[in-house]
Amino acid sequence: MGKFDTKKLLPLVGPLLLYAVWEFALDSKAIKPVLLPPPMDTLQYLWGSITSGAVNKDLLATILRTVYAFVIATVIGVPLGIALGSSVNLYRSVEFLVDFFRSTPSSALIPLFLLIFGITDTNKVAIAAFAAVLVIIFNSAYGVMNAKKTRVMAAITMGIPRRFIFKDVLLMESLPQTFVGLRGGISMALVIVIVAEMFIGSENGLGHRIIDAQQVFNVKEMYSSILITGALGYVMNLAFLMLERHLIHWSGKA
C-alpha cells in the first residue's frame, strides 16, 4: 500500500462545508427549523424514502419522461443539426429561429403547449423535448460547420466520393460537439420535466413530489426530494461524460 494521497479527499470539502453552514444556520437560530429541517434529519428522511421505496414511483416517472423527451430530441435534433450544418446557407436561414427559441426559457412556452396538448403527460414530454432539441440542433450544426477543413481536403485528395466524405469525415468530426449538445440536452430535458411536473397537473414525478410537500409544509420531504432531483441530474451528466470519454476518445486531443 502506497501513501494515501490526501488530495483525493478535496472534493469532500465542499459538501462538508455546506453541511456545516446548514447546521450553523439552525444552531445560531438564523433560520427557523420550520423552514429548514436539520441536515441529519433530512438525510435520514432521504435515506428512509429510498430504502422504503416511497420515492421510487416519482423518481421513475421523472426518469422516464426525461428519457422519452431526450430520445425524441436526439432522433430529431442530431440528423437535423447535421443537415443544417452541412449547408451554411440553410443554417443561416434558420439561425435566427434556433437562437431565438434557444434563448427563450422553454418554461415560458408551457401555456402554449397546454393549449396544444392539454394537461397530459404528452405535454410534459413534448415541451422538454422541444427545449432539448434546440440545444442539440445548435451543437450538431456547429460540429459539422467547424469540421477541420484540412481533414475534408485530405479525403478529397484521396479521391473519396462525396457521400463517404460526409459519413467518414464530417459526421465523425461533428461528434465531439454533438455530444456536448446531447449532454446539454438531457440536462435541459430534466429541468423542463421538473418544472412541468410542478405546474402542469401531475400525479407523479419528482417535481410533483416537491410541490406537494411544500403545499402541506412537509419540509423534510421537500428538501430530500430536492436533493434526489439534484443527484439525478448529477448522475445523468456524469454518465454522459463517461460515455463521451469512452466513445469520443479523441475529443480535445486532436
Binding site: 477541420k148 477543413k149 484540412t150 481533414r151 481536403m153 485530405a154 485528395t157 484521396m158 479521391g159 467518414d168 469525415v169 465523425m172 461528434l175 476518445h249 479523441w250 486531443k253 486532436a254
Partner: peptide
C-alpha cells in the same frame, strides 16, 4: 488521376478517430 497530398499541419490532416 490518382494523387496524394501531404499537408503542412499533420495534426489537422489525420483522422483522430
Amino acid at each position: 488521376t490518382d494523387i496524394g497530398y501531404v499537408f503542412q499541419n499533420y495534426r489537422d490532416a489525420l483522422f483522430p478517430w
